[in-house]
């Protein structure tokens, strides 16, 4: 009769965990539980000890099978080819430590199926359903009728990453009260992600002076200069901003 309680006490491992590990390892290696416990406690060499690996000689892909030290793996430790000035340390000897990773005999199908179900449900709830057009609520549509030039400007707005600092999203909250009309669901503006700079939803209606707007894009005030744009591209960007009203 295997005395797990004493062994657990000696090894400093919870008894239930030790019992599970020993039973699994004993079954895998075809050895007795007592024998295995004695080896783990340092009494004798590990039964069914793993073959030692030639250092640096066996690429993993050429060696089929399983790690001899099974479970958590790891394995026989072999000295690696060390630098000339530092000779490799001797191969460790002494008692083999018990495995510290503790698993449960189970299939992974449940994890795969469960996590996949959660993923698809999450995508459905967080993105697909809320993004669907809301029929029957005509007033909800707020697509801007941008000109071709403005649409080109919107492309440039996206490429320059303007949405990293500017939003075009006016929420129904006090903080946004002075910005303009609240943004509705079908907007084809660029919502943006943070307001390092001001919101640009209705900037065309707030700033009459196109020259001043162009100067801002060229680096006036604290706005960084938008570099690498031709005059045409800059004009398109300005058209987009002007039409965002």
């Amino acid at each position: 009769m295997t005395d797990y309680a004493t062994a657990a006490n000696t090894l400093g491992v919870p008894e239930a965990i030790l019992r599970r590990s020993v039973e699994a390892r004993a079954k895998a290696d075809g050895v007795g539980a007592d024998e295995l416990l004695a080896a783990w406690a340092g009494g004798e060499a590990m039964p069914a000890a793993a073959p030692s690996a030639p250092a640096t000689s066996a690429p993993p892909e050429t060696a089929p099978g399983v790690p001899a030290e099974a479970a958590p793996a790891a394995a026989p430790v072999a000295p690696v080819a060390a630098p000339a000035e530092a000779p490799p340390p001797p191969r460790p000897t002494g008692p083999v430590a018990p495995p510290v990773l503790v698993g449960v005999n189970q299939r992974t199908n449940g994890v795969i199926a469960g996590s996949s179900a959660i993923l698809f449900l999450s995508i459905l709830l967080a993105f697909v359903v809320p993004s669907l057009p809301q029929p029957g609520t005509g007033v909800r549509s707020s697509n801007h009728a941008y000109s071709q030039g403005a649409l080109e400007g919107q492309e440039i707005y996206l490429e320059q990453g303007c949405g990293s600092c500017h939003t075009q999203l006016i929420r129904a909250v006090v903080a946004d009260a002075k910005l303009g009309p609240v943004t509705l669901s079908d907007s084809n503006q660029v919502f943006g992600y943070r307001r390092v700079g001001p919101d640009l939803s209705a900037i065309g209606g707030r700033t009459e002076d196109s020259a001043a707007l162009a100067n801002v894009l060229r680096g006036a005030g604290t706005h960084p200069a938008v570099t690498g744009l031709s005059d045409e591209s800059l004009a398109s960007l300005l058209t987009y901003l002007r039409e965002s009203a």
């Binding site: 793993a50 073959p51 030692s52 690996a53 250092a55 066996a58 993993p60 060696a63 089929p64 099978g65 399983v66 790690p67 001899a68 030290e69 793996a73 790891a74 394995a75 026989p76 430790v77 072999a78 000295p79 690696v80 060390a82 630098p83 530092a86 000779p87 490799p88 340390p89 191969r91 460790p92």
Partner: peptide, 14 residues
Amino acid sequence: GKATVQEVLVVKQT
């Protein structure tokens, strides 16, 4: 780095 033991995965023939 100072030389130390390297873990080599050893597989048994199946």
